[in-house]
Nucleic acid binder design. Structure first.
Lengths: 359, 359
DNA sequence: GGATAGGATGTTCACGGTAACAACAAAGAA
DNA sequence: TTCTTTGTTGTTACCGTGAACATCCTATCC
């Protein structure tokens, strides 16, 4: 020790004053190591301004006490929380969790922590969750919803942090946007099926009633219908029924109506629903794709496993998450002057065997 | 205003001193509403000690400024962060995310926020992630792994917060435990298949090599093998191959070996792997269950959709998450004297049609 | 030898809230 | 009337850390 610190030592180290808990703080470490709190702080943050000998003494004290720095206190002082907020409709969708996964991967390396909230497709939850997230002072926020509320926008504005909207590319982005067009997904699906020569092209999606709303699915249907109209076809075979999030059961339940309507090719709003259709068809002795062609969206793993393998539309959600992470890092590391980015990660049809060539 | 506050007003409200950012703070609200910061704090927390007239004035100021309280600052002072930490192996497993979902649901109502970290089945990540979590000062922590490291235990101890281990019931719980026995899963599966009269009973699981380890799957295999031995059967037909987390491809890839070994009933470590087996069998013209009976674990939704529907073992992960949430709330609300709980949520065989009755 | 530069460490104060307690007014009790 | 109680609001002092700046020491240079 080159110098004696003037930091006052408590008469009894065990005597805790005020509101403090029993957890070791930076002060305990500093006393044990015989240095100032600031020196400990420097060691903890790996600032490399400290003599190796001192550093080792501090590290030993940290290990002895099982000290873990309090990031809440740290961020209060430094104005950097190391949080990135992420708002999702649900955790139980493989594509969203793939995006979250890609995001986390990139940010983890930079010592950022994702703060995840999800709304279960409920609009009311959105504002509540947003407030909760912002209260943690994230350095940036990633949204998947279409934030509508006036109060929500006000809060986002006051928060004054970078905003990235992912998954669906909004027409009027709040800040940056990385994703793809669900509208184009619908158009692409319709174009693909029409191109195969089908006469009775239908689609199945959830209906949007009450508080639970799936904008993304509805966008896909809009695109699908527009493409149908443009080709001079009727949109009567587009069926909306059941609530988001749709799953296997959704598709299975709609098979009777598909038969009723004599549909020969159907686009399902999600691969899960499409798989449900295929499996239910097997039970009814309806051959896929001979009697009914089925196309999905999302390229969920299960689609590539079933018989026949599912034709679908692929979007690389993990890459989407990773790109978001990279942009995020640029933004929080000072490149605040970056003009609003709008990145379309695109989509592509994966042709497998659940769609035949007709006519 | 009944009294004039002595809180010093800045000469120029816009002039920011020190390190502060542009975001409105409780002080800005207090000035605008003409009350003390403490009064604002009471209104924000809904403490109902404030005159309605004053409360309204404060609410208006909050709305005007778009003020969102800083929870980091609040928790530093109150010693309550409102965080519950959750460590998972992965987010992309439907059962784990169901548990996370159930947990979040319960805690959300009590204004707690889940802080999620996941390790991707890597041991090295575990300690790093644990440190990151503890740095946020969660009021309790929920673990799914088997924490091994000495340092990890030291940190957990120093954190001095309730610990709940979920999913797998450990032999020596650190604190509380809610879950089921993966060992029993294996035994139950073996018993079920043996009870059906099969002669060549096998199983497929991941192998545990390198840093990536799936304790849970291995436990199931241990139980399976023990039951086999106890029945005087050979365990030669238990195949370990591929890394956790296993998915559809795992099962599909192992079908040739199942044929090779003339296995007539197989237990897959996970439904996903089992579904892979079933689908691949269809491609090879192997009939399920006539030629090969298949049993899975986890009761994933897809299992109830495929043909034939998958016989499996069900554990109610969502309920598991909810019960964890309820216990958590008891623990953080003062019931610290609660003796260590050990709750077995049990498991049950779901008989469907992928397993036949033999001999 | 004295001035200067730079490395290692220390001190002070602010970050944005809240616990604890104090102060004061109005209403009720003795 | 005076004392006590109750309800509302304010003041003070922290919570644990980091930014900014200060200080001390050693090495180097002319």
């Amino acid at each position: 020790m080159r110098r004696t610190t003037k930091e006052k030592a408590a008469a009894t180290p065990t005597a805790r004053r005020g509101r403090s808990t029993g957890r070791p703080t930076i002060r305990d470490v500093s006393r044990l190591a015989g240095v100032s709190r600031m020196t400990v702080s420097r060691v903890v943050r790996g600032l490399d301004l400290v003599l190796p000998e001192t550093r080792d003494r501090v590290h030993k004290a940290i290990a002895d006490l099982g000290y873990v720095p309090d990031r809440a206190a740290g961020s209060l002082s430094s104005r950097r929380t190391g949080f990135i907020a992420l708002m999702l409709p649900t955790l139980t969708n493989a594509n969203f969790s793939a995006a979250a996964h890609g995001l986390t991967e990139v940010l983890r390396a930079a010592d950022y922590h994702m703060l995840i909230a999800y709304t279960d497709y409920s609009i009311d939850e959105e504002e509540r969750q947003l407030r909760n997230l912002l209260a943690r002072r994230p350095e940036a926020i990633v949204l998947t919803g279409w934030l509508k509320g006036r109060m929500a926008s006000r809060m986002l504005l006051a928060a004054d942090i970078p905003v990235i909207e992912i998954a669906d590319l909004p027409r009027q982005p709040i800040g940056h946007a990385i994703g793809f067009s669900n509208y184009e997904v619908g158009r692409t699906a319709a174009r693909h099926l029409l191109g195969k020569g089908f006469q009775h092209v239908g689609a199945i999606a959830g209906s949007n009633e009450g508080d639970v709303i799936d904008h993304r699915g509805e966008e896909r249907m809009r695109g699908f219908e527009d493409e149908l109209r443009q080709a001079g076809r009727s949109t009567d075979l587009v069926i909306r029924q059941g609530n988001a999030p749709v799953s296997y059961g959704h598709g299975a339940a709609l098979v009777p109506r598909l038969i009723d309507k004599k549909i020969d090719a159907v686009f399902a709003v999600s691969d899960l629903s499409a798989v449900g259709v295929v499996m239910e068809c097997q039970r009814h002795g309806i051959r896929v794709p001979e009697d009914l062609s089925v196309m999905g969206f999302g390229d969920f793993e299960i689609g590539s496993v079933i018989n026949p393998r599912l034709t679908t539309i692929h979007v690389d959600f993990k890459a989407l998450g990773q790109r978001t992470g990279q942009l995020l890092l640029q933004l929080v590391n000072g490149e605040t002057t970056l003009p609003p980015q709008r990145i379309d990660v695109g989509l592509r049809v994966i042709e497998r065997t659940s769609v035949r060539t007709a006519g």
